[in-house]
Design a protein around this nucleic acid. Structure first.
Length: 256
DNA sequence: ATGGTCGTTGCACGA
């Protein structure tokens, strides 16, 4: 099973590229973030024409997450399912695809450490963990993937000195990812590329992509049983090139 | 040293 995640930065602006990419890469499951669409504007027929079932949770304009699958798509849950307060934004959707419970997540950006949005980000990550624990046991086949807006370690940042005091690298955010791992999840990409300075997001400005100034913030977490099946992981940098790219590249994992 | 660009929408703001 080939599973991928991609922050498309507006599915309306990106649909052509996403269709082309699906035909080329042939993933079985694709999790998308920042569709920036209302549910009734989601192009389900375009995905159906390529053989994919789909589930979307959007609000229009901002945020919006989706899962498309050609290996089944059942048990769809929008928003958090831990019994706590629902997130006012459309940032998480969960479904079972090919025997794996998959969540597509768009973690709040945080803006800056002194912003209320940063506290929202930390609360959001805690609730994500409760959501995962409410739906699964650590021994289950579970994937939580998407745009985490957190670089797990300094190796995931092109120049850590430029991010001192910034979001995406703060100890509190990283501790939330560690807590997810403590529950029973593994960063599948890092497991396959222990020392690689490879990124999944590059600012549109100043030629950051071509200068190699990026962050690895698009992550695929899998439970141990998923990690044991994972034989390949890659960032598809080609999808960040050319005409009208998203500022994120897809991350792909292959499970046996 | 600073600011670079996109996407939304509507003539600013979030990332």
């Amino acid at each position: 099973m080939r599973l991928a995640t991609w922050n498309v930065n507006s599915l309306k602006a990106r649909l052509g590229r996403v269709e082309e990419w699906l035909a080329d890469v042939q993933p079985d499951v694709l999790c998308m973030q920042e569709t920036k669409l209302a549910d009734d504007a989601f192009p389900a027929l375009s995905f159906a024409a390529l053989g994919y079932e789909s589930a979307h949770y959007g609000q229009g304009q901002w945020n919006g997450v989706a899962i498309v699958s050609r290996v089944g798509l059942t048990d769809v849950v929008v928003n958090f399912a831990d019994g706590g307060d629902p997130d006012p934004d459309a940032r998480i959707i969960t479904a079972v695809c090919g025997g794996v419970r998959v969540s597509s997540v768009y973690v709040p950006n945080g803006r800056s450490l002194d912003d209320d949005h940063y506290q929202y980000k930390l609360r959001w990550l805690k609730q994500l963990r409760r959501h995962v624990a409410a739906l699964n046991e650590p021994t289950d086949q579970v994937v939580v993937t998407g745009d985490f807006n957190v670089a797990p370690a300094d190796i995931d940042v092109y120049d850590p000195s430029k991010f001192v005091g910034a979001t995406h690298v703060s100890p509190a955010e990283r501790a939330e990812l560690s807590a997810l791992c403590d529950w029973g999840m593994v960063d599948l990409f890092r497991r396959h590329h222990a020392d690689a300075k490879l990124y999944s997001w590059w600012d549109y400005r100043a030629g950051d992509f071509h200068q190699g100034r990026g962050l690895r913030i698009d992550l695929v977490f899998g439970t141990t049983s998923v990690a044991e099946r994972c034989e390949f992981a890659i960032v598809d940098r080609n999808a960040r090139k050319g005409q009208s790219p998203s500022d994120h590249a897809p991350v792909i994992v292959d499970l046996t």
